[in-house]
Nucleic acid binder design. Sequence first.
RNA 1: GGACGGGUGGGUGAGUGGCUAAAACCAGCAGACUGUAAAUCUGCCGCUCCUUGCGGGCUACGGAGGUUCGAAUCCUCCCCCGUCCA
Length: 387
Amino acid sequence: MSFRFEVLKTDPSGARLGRLETPHGVVETPAFLPVGTLATVKSLTQDALEDLGAQILLANTYHLHLRPGEELIREMGGLHKFMSWPHPILTDSGGYQVFSLSAIRKITDEGVTFRSHLDGSEHFLSPEKAVEIQIALGSDIMMVLDECIESSSAEDRARAAMIRTLDWARRSFVHFGHRGDPSRQMLFGIVQGGAHRELRRQCAEELVALGFPGYAIGGLAVGEPHEVTCEVTAEVASRLPSDRPRYLMGVGRPEQIADYVARGVDMMDCVLPTRSARHGCLFTWHGRLLIKNVCFKNDARPIDPDCECPACRRYSRAYIRHLVMSGEMLGASLGTLHNIYFYLDIMEKIRKAIRFGNLLGFCSDLQARLAGRVSESGVESGAKPSV
RNA sequence: GGACGGGUGGGUGAGUGGCUAAAACCAGCAGACUGUAAAUCUGCCGCUCCUUGCGGGCUACGGAGGUUCGAAUCCUCCCCCGUCCA
């Protein structure tokens, strides 16, 4: 069997240390997935990602369908070969675009019609089509098409979307049963239901009854308070089978991700490290550092003196600020290198904390360290978390 | 020496009598960003005062005068810059 998920250890918090085997390699969980929507983690080479220790990437069905198209990618030998990433890949289904591109799409029980943001042409995405595309892409983990909604949605709206998501999950499951190869690809179901516990519970239970090899929690961290995200995550995770991986989609801030792990989450992805880097926001063990701030103009120190990333080993804040202010591509690259390294470093420390059975201690430590801002006075004293 | 054209806030550059502390863009300052329509977006960007308000005062469109209730805008002279002619 090409896929195997194994929980190696459970922390008193409920966090799990695990291992996910895929045809393209092993993912140690809890894992963070850098986002590579268009088959690229913006501004980084695959070499760089390997050096950073990335184990698995996320790519996007909707975007790759529009450009360059899944048929081209299939023809080029599949997504792994096409992008020269021989390691695991997870593809999102386009469900998030139902939410983020709500202005240019129409949704029915049958599926979603998008008006391409590139050229205005119409594209119909059904649950079956999303599965087909992802089969063509050949990702290790594929996601069912879901209806992602605002977390603040009223119960009626959330129920309707949840019911549709469930229906689509069934269709996806059936379609994959006919067309897919479970030794080559896993299909994850996605729990929706907004911030409504009862809806979440119902959605989780019905998905579990279908028997997916893994489950995702979607529709969170889209504006609701962190505590709500945590509560809903805990509620859903408690309904999911303990022997299947759990993927919390689209989270989170550095100081928050350990909290999700403590709720039993095994995988996470987020655009924050990559996008923020391009916008000049760098995450450090001493808080966020806005590299464009004038106080770093002549600061010869690295982004984070406690960081071993390629950017911090070699370049100063002053130089990186100059690059970012000048709109130089290298500025985006170095920032992204740093932020991805930082996220992966946190994940490694999280795994270590679970191994030591002390994730909750680590959570509060992270919160205390990372919530602040780095200003001209420099970094506050203190070493890295010592777990 | 002469003929045109032009001098606007840090920069480029609109604006030809009141709606102009002066468009727009850039630069600068600050902020946002959570399964990426994002190398994007938002706010500020003359000085000053306060009861921080579509608030008051002051200064400002090369310089100095003038016309006018009112001038970046009209007139006079001067100073610069560019092009062309001697």
